[in-house]
Nucleic acid binder design. Structure first.
Lengths: 193, 193
DNA sequence: CCATTCTTTCAGTATTTACTGAAAGATGGA
DNA sequence: TCCATCTTTCAGTAAATACTGAAAGAATGG
């Protein structure tokens, strides 16, 4: 099937090149940052590409632009979709799938935050509670629960639990509110301080 | 030199064991979480150990408890000290050094946040600004700057820059305020929502 | 139904990251 | 000064992680 050319005035080659250079710079930095936050470089790069280009790309576009294999592209794109920050998109009259990034950074932040809280903070909180139960009077007796070392550890666990409960509450404000929630948070904060 | 035994009533062995089990559970979970946030497992574990035990430990204590080599312990402890969440401690009459974790979770959070902002967010923000400059009228001319693709990319970069500027401001509130700042933040937020 | 086009999977491999242990370097006491 | 004790460094190695490419699996059109 023959597809009509996108009807758009093309940029002069020099500008095209400059655009790509700027995009690549952003993509590279974004990938580097991802790594230090526990997100693999390629995934971060793909996301950066889709975000900065601001147009739907297909798998081959991504492979070509980032010099990665088909398998890698496929798996990384799926993971991004699972996170919810990239969406699949079917173009009419096209057989292959396209992918686009969410456009609102605040939405992306909300999604990622919610997911990481669920995956990583909640289990830790659960463990802390479990540890505390292992050291309460019921488990080890009144006498032992008063032992110096036990007390110390229990205090520390309690401190951490409190911290995580509070940060969880803050996250709740962000999650689901996305942009409007966040800007409101910021406005409130900047006024209060 | 002979060192006097620590003058403290020891816990019954069963309690001792239970205490250690609870601590180990916490340590393990903390290490796992660290990994997913880009902090290596051992470093997170050492920190968890020092935090939860709530008493200064020497290098050999750490090595023994976590089954790691001297080199690893030395390097990881130094890194933790660099982050500022662990402190070196000289006991009088002791030749070797001891290490202790900060006790206040809020302080630790502030330190880590400030450092990660400096190391990881600031460079990205700088890059985004640079990318935008590469695509402004001065660089590529009025005509080209109006091209559709250029416009799209510029909008995306602007969106990301705004986001990072705002989150930076939020961080500023936390940093330096630590506990008091955070609890205030929370109080303000919970009231406002 | 087959042929074509596109997508996913995964065993094998490459790359990166983390860890060890031994040797060199400090520090402090005698 | 030397000796003993403790710390750091780093080359070599082990472990974890990421990536590839080919093969199998869907989906679509004819």
């Amino acid at each position: 099937m023959v597809v009509a050319e996108t009807p758009r005035a093309n940029l002069p080659p020099a500008v095209q090149r400059q655009l790509q250079t700027a995009q690549d710079l952003f993509i590279r930095r974004w990938g580097e940052m991802g790594q230090t936050w526990g997100i693999n470089r390629t995934m971060a790069e793909i996301h950066a590409l889709l975000y900065v280009v601001a147009e739907p790309l297909c798998t081959d576009d991504v492979m070509e632009r980032l010099h990665i294999s088909r398998g890698n592209a496929s798996m990384s794109l799926r993971a991004l979709c699972d996170w919810g920050i990239v969406r699949r998109l079917h173009k009419l009259g096209e057989r292959r799938e396209f992918f686009e990034s969410l456009s609102d950074v605040w939405d992306m932040f909300s999604l990622i935050t919610a997911e990481r809280k669920r995956r990583e903070m909640d289990p830790v909180l659960e463990t802390i509670k479990q540890c505390r139960r292992m050291l309460d009077e019921q488990s080890i007796g009144k006498q032992a629960a008063r032992g110096r070392e036990v007390q110390l550890t229990r205090q520390r666990l309690a401190g951490m639990e409190e911290f995580m409960e509070v940060t969880n509450k803050i996250f709740q404000q962000f999650i689901g509110n996305a942009r409007s929630g966040l800007t409101r948070v910021v406005r409130v904060l900047l006024k209060a301080f």
